[in-house]
Design a protein around this nucleic acid. Structure first.
Lengths: 104, 104
DNA sequence: CGAGAATATGTCACAACTGACATATTGTCA
DNA sequence: TGACAATATGTCAGTTGTGACATATTCTCG
């Protein structure tokens, strides 16, 4: 299944751009994945800066440790909605969100 | 139901910030809604600039006219995912997405 | 005004996302 | 090393988002 393949590659830290042709992704799809990965990395960074465990962050977001782990792993089962809401819940200003997207 | 109420207010063009206390929304929720509305308005603007009908835009996005209408109306049943993917499909650069969020 | 195009609204079956749980793996420190 | 904390992975039932359709409403021009 394509989604699984993509996920595996993302996990390995491959730059998506590199495998774009191989996976047959359109530009929009690539951009979309890049945005998600950028949000996911930022979430992890902010959580760590706040010295929160995934468990604590999960409580804050009314979610679960496993979902937080998936968010940070860039798991395809995680929506952009959840990523954005989570970042906002960690107190990220919209202005900062904008910067993340702009430079993803 | 609260969601319905919120939707009705959004449709009327009320600034969400104004009714935040009334609806009992947290700051994150407010920010989240503002982001969605900003994306939704931008999508409509870009579609019109390209002189596309909702029908044509829908075909482009592999969606339906009714869903496009809901996207532009800020309907709560529309996800941030769909809004972002749609904007990307219309050729919006990530940089522009960032600006939208930053200033929402 | 009136007809045809565009847009809006309501509904629904199906698909995608979600929190929660169990469990495995990795990290840390004595 | 071993024990405990943190993180990762897999699964699933319940919830939310989705395209599609029917139909209503609004726009636009003659």
């Amino acid at each position: 299944m394509e989604t699984t393949k993509r996920k595996r590659l993302e996990r390995k830290g491959w730059k998506v751009g590199t495998v774009q042709e191989f996976l047959g992704l359109s530009n929009e799809e690539t951009a979309y994945i890049e945005v998600k990965l950028a949000l996911s990395k930022t979430f992890q960074r902010r959580r760590r800066e706040k010295r929160l465990t995934q468990q604590q962050a999960a409580r804050l977001l009314k979610s679960s440790q496993s979902r937080v782990a998936k968010m940070e792993a860039g798991d395809p089962s995680v929506s952009l909605d959840l990523l954005v809401r989570s970042l906002l819940a960690l107190g990220t200003p919209k202005r900062a969100l904008g910067r993340i997207l702009s430079s993803s």
